[in-house]
């Protein structure tokens, strides 16, 4: 694998660690951290800062019964939760979102496919499959858009993005990412666009629908 050059910036890592990052973006960060040592180290550093806050931000007395309850439960049997392992180009967090199954792709035309992982009124996150030479569909975002490459690569006006790289885009960025020659480009894309706008149109067709 080539070296990852586009990482998770500090403010997003801090929000992810603290849990204030909306779920679609949190899945992108968790996936990137599973692929990138540098960001794993950054994640751990933010946890250390969170730990410093936990140590020093103040205490509240706990009831007597809480401790006896916890001590009494130490030997209780626990049901084990399923752990979904990395499969092919899909790291653990994506396999968890897929509940261990292979992605179920839906065609968007021109060979472009998508598989929606989750979505609600606050945003959505999906897998995209883009054949070489095709444009990455527009996510229709108003705010932050995060696109993480899992396989292959794409290029746009701002640079080249290979496996593990994350492109961050806000509404001001006019860009047209195109999948490079080679294996089909598979990405994980998160946006704040509500899921009801999920009728993605491959980017090359868009001018037809614009005024």
């Amino acid at each position: 694998m080539t070296e990852i050059t586009h990482h998770i910036p500090d403010h997003l890592m801090a929000a992810y660690t603290a849990g204030s990052l909306p779920e679609p973006y949190a899945l992108v960060v968790a996936t990137h951290v599973s692929m990138c040592l540098e960001c794993h180290a950054s994640y751990e550093a933010h946890q250390a800062l969170g730990g410093a806050v936990l140590e020093t931000a103040g205490e509240a007395a706990v009831s007597e019964v809480l401790k006896s309850d916890v001590m009494a439960l130490l030997d209780a049997p626990v049901a084990s939760e399923p752990v979904y392992k990395r499969s092919g180009v899909y790291p653990g967090p994506i396999m968890t979102a897929l509940k261990g199954r292979a992605p179920r792709w839906k065609s968007l035309g021109l060979g472009v496919r998508q598989c929606i992982l989750s979505g609600n009124s606050e945003g959505s996150v999906r897998l995209l499959y883009i054949p070489p030479g095709q444009a990455v569909p527009d996510h229709g975002h108003n705010g932050l858009e995060m696109t993480l490459v899992l396989q292959g690569s794409f290029s746009d006006e701002t640079g080249w993005f290979g496996a593990g790289d994350v492109e961050l885009a806000d509404q001001d960025l006019e860009h047209t990412p195109i999948a490079d020659a080679g294996p089909p480009c598979i990405c994980l894309a998160a946006t704040d666009a509500p899921l009801r706008f999920n009728s993605f149109v491959p980017r090359l067709l868009q001018p037809i629908f614009r005024i």
């Binding site: 660690t17 603290a18 849990g19 949190a26 968890t96 979102a97």
Partner: peptide
């Protein structure tokens, strides 16, 4: 730091009633 992360994850799972994505 380790306990901080466990606590935040648990709090979010309770508030949002969904499991927060965590790295491998």
């Amino acid at each position: 730091g380790w306990i901080y992360q466990i606590a935040r994850n648990r709090q979010i799972d309770v508030i949002r009633k969904e499991n927060r994505p965590v790295p491998e």
